[in-house]
Design a protein around this nucleic acid. Sequence first.
DNA 1: CTGTTAGCGCGTTCAC
DNA 2: GTGAACGCGCTAACAG
Lengths: 331, 331
Amino acid sequence: MATIKDVAKLANVSVATVSRVLNGSAKVSKTAKDAVLQAREELGFVLNANARALAHQNSEIIGAVVSDVSDPYFGTMAKAIEKTAHNLNAKLLIAQGFHDKQRERQAIENLLSYKCRAYIVHALAMSDHEITHYLNLVPAMVLINRKVTGYEHRCINIDNKYGTYLATLELIKHGHHNIAYVGSSHNILDAKERLAGFNQALKDNNIKLNKEFVFKDEPSLEGGERVALKLLDIVNKITAIVTYNDTQAVSIISVLTQHGINIPNDISIVGFDNLYMSRFLNPPLSTVINPVESMAHEALMLSLSISKNEHYLPSNFEVSFVARNSIKTLN
Amino acid sequence: MATIKDVAKLANVSVATVSRVLNGSAKVSKTAKDAVLQAREELGFVLNANARALAHQNSEIIGAVVSDVSDPYFGTMAKAIEKTAHNLNAKLLIAQGFHDKQRERQAIENLLSYKCRAYIVHALAMSDHEITHYLNLVPAMVLINRKVTGYEHRCINIDNKYGTYLATLELIKHGHHNIAYVGSSHNILDAKERLAGFNQALKDNNIKLNKEFVFKDEPSLEGGERVALKLLDIVNKITAIVTYNDTQAVSIISVLTQHGINIPNDISIVGFDNLYMSRFLNPPLSTVINPVESMAHEALMLSLSISKNEHYLPSNFEVSFVARNSIKTLN
DNA sequence: CTGTTAGCGCGTTCAC
DNA sequence: GTGAACGCGCTAACAG
């Protein structure tokens, strides 16, 4: 690989001049400029970002840890982060935590080694204790979908409880009383909050919670599949299902349908997240809109502002409900 | 941020010793080692990857350009690349091309500035001329889903034609003769090959191609949605649809179903890619299995081997057909 | 086993 | 307007 020296030599100028024209950091004579540009072209030269970061003492990398990029939710998040990063001329370094303590730690350490300009971290498996350690170490680190006491201003969250509350309420409004809840088996805040929203909605409407109707499994297609198989046993006792997320809903719909149960005629269902494809499901899924993109954007802006010692106040993330076609009105 | 000097000072050793223990690159006395580890802990120190790369003259970054990480196909690809990278102790730097000439170029240049260890590039909008330029410049660059004459050994592809051939054949075997084809509007090799596979299957079975039955639009949910609306006009003349990819199939199924058309009873449909969720669609989608994961893996291995001047022969990527429930047998 | 030192590629003074 | 030289944080000889 060619270096700045090679360019300088070929252009018959000093490295300083090359640096100046390539960065536009100072006036350079047209002759010199043209020579440099010509040489650069000839060598296919690109400035070494590592060396630049070292000399310049600032990185253009945005580090993000997500659970799994192939998960539509995180894919969308990653895309949103990259979008904002791109506008800031920054690049996206991705690490995956796979909801595993070790992997999450490793992911964070990897990013740290790149001395990123900002850190957006979605890590739910780690202990509060450990994450606090990193939070203290790295001012530019912002958490997404997690709340750590004492660091609330560096945590970006939505109102999960309210989201599921809305979804459950919608079902109740449509006349449903025997509602099953499919939660996440991950022992994380989101899971508790969403379940709480479900319970609250029942309570506010004087519906007794039937513990037999509450399930939990991975918030994945497979998780939904497993739960659906269990759901089959109580399918005659319920008229609706509230799920932890759209992904679970997808496979639950699939399995139930395969077993001759019609959605929404036999069983209504609501999701959470409003994934990109949810409106194209069969039936189109009624769900809670999770503003991932704006969360990702705000998380990055927050992180950046912290580095600059600014006080950035992330906007509020409103969750809302979108009615589509997976709920039947009971008389 | 603490540097290696700070650690050295705190541990009362030289920077060389710190480097040695942190890299395990040479024997160090237990006393020194413990002191270093202790100091590192205290400072929360992490080696600067940029500086390491500079000194070491080799990066641990794998650069990948994909169209859009939020697209399930590319999400899966990214995950697969990261998996292999992780096993090699490397990190994944992602750039998105969004199927745009400019963005693709920019994506590649960005990655180049990081002097990555390997480059996996999915860029279909760029001209052959331009991509060749980069191919010449960067030996470690490998193309995915693209074939450039003279660089075949650096291109990782599947047999697209055969894939769609298989899918179409399956339909024909089930008695379908009036089959629509929904292609990609991108002017790329994949699109041509898949269409060719469709045509070939018809030809081999003495079915005349009805040009009225051939459509093209973006290989996205929206693209499928638009085409589906047009499909409505000829829905009485056809019994089956071959799509460019599963994503299109998803929205086509959705729109047709919303219009009272039953899949597969009224219209059969086959996809391409076998996305993670395709088996959970309603109905479960019969489709062509696209071995993205192994392609991604092999692409990375190939790139790495080229850098080492080795001759790596990527394994063959077999496409195959998976029958699920979106095809009806005609009598 | 350990410390000193010379680069790695680049940005940036500071003289000229 | 330009070049020489130092330093960014780290690794890898080279001495000791």
